[in-house]
């Protein structure tokens, strides 16, 4: 059991940037491509994932001493499925229009690799408080990725944000097409890679100079 030594702030920042679930770990790509065509979708699904991640992390880290290692994966799945059912019913009751736009993706949170992976890697080895912050980090990281994608696509596709018109024209209508998600994710990943390459080159130069 490797209990984490990171502070809570570090855990959140890790999830947001260096271990960002969409752009760095490349997990849970389906919603990133499928429904990132507007910022609102990104925020709502982000909230749903944040909720499920935080609550399942806490549940598993509370129950970790009672789960037999051999049946841990089915246990994780059942815990996630329970919380997904909760958020699914809540969203369907309070925001029916947006729920319809997200379609099947809310129910499919169960199959997102990112949540199971965090439970397996983090929550089953750590106490409740770090697990909670790790869940918050991963959830907001996911939301951050979805909102970034949504912003790029909505701005380029419709010339506005959150449904408000900003520049009056539609620069690239192509980006509102559902399949533009593939291109968007590809380009943003390339930008992340570029930043990493430049950062490493600068670091190497600095170490040589010293």
């Amino acid at each position: 059991m490797a209990v984490t030594k990171k502070t809570n702030k570090q855990l959140v920042l890790d999830g947001l940037l260096s271990e960002n679930p969409i752009f760095r770990l490349a997990l849970s790509m389906c919603p990133a491509v499928g429904i990132s065509s507007s910022v609102m979708n990104g925020i709502l699904l982000g909230i749903a994932v944040l909720f499920v991640q935080v609550f399942s992390s806490c549940t598993i880290s509370l129950l970790k001493d009672y789960i037999h290692p051999r049946i841990r994966i089915p246990t994780y799945t059942l815990v996630i499925a329970t919380w997904v059912t909760v958020i699914d019913l809540v969203l369907a009751a309070y925001v029916p229009v947006a729920y319809k736009a997200m379609g099947i993706f809310v129910k499919l949170i169960v199959a997102f690799a990112i949540i199971t992976m965090r439970l397996e890697v983090f929550a089953c080895k750590n106490p409740v408080v770090p697990s909670f912050w790790d869940g918050v980090g991963m959830g907001t990281g996911f939301m951050f990725g979805m909102v970034t994608l949504g912003t790029v696509r909505e701005f380029l596709g419709t010339g506005g944000l959150l449904g408000h018109d900003l520049i009056g024209t539609r620069p690239l209508l192509f980006f509102i097409l559902p399949l533009a998600g593939f291109f968007c994710v590809g380009f943003i990943m390339a930008i992340f890679n570029y930043v990493e390459i430049v950062y490493k080159r600068m670091k190497r130069k600095r170490s040589i100079a010293q």
């Binding site: 097409l177 994710v185 590809g186 990943m189 390339a190 930008i191 890679n193």
Partner: peptide, 22 residues
């Protein structure tokens, strides 16, 4: 190009396939 190696180029190829399937 090194920045596109691996997943980014795979995503762009998948996008082209999706265009074809449209």
């Amino acid at each position: 190009p090194p920045t596109y190696r691996g997943l980014p180029i795979a995503f762009i190829v998948a996008g082209l396939f999706a265009l074809a399937f449209l």
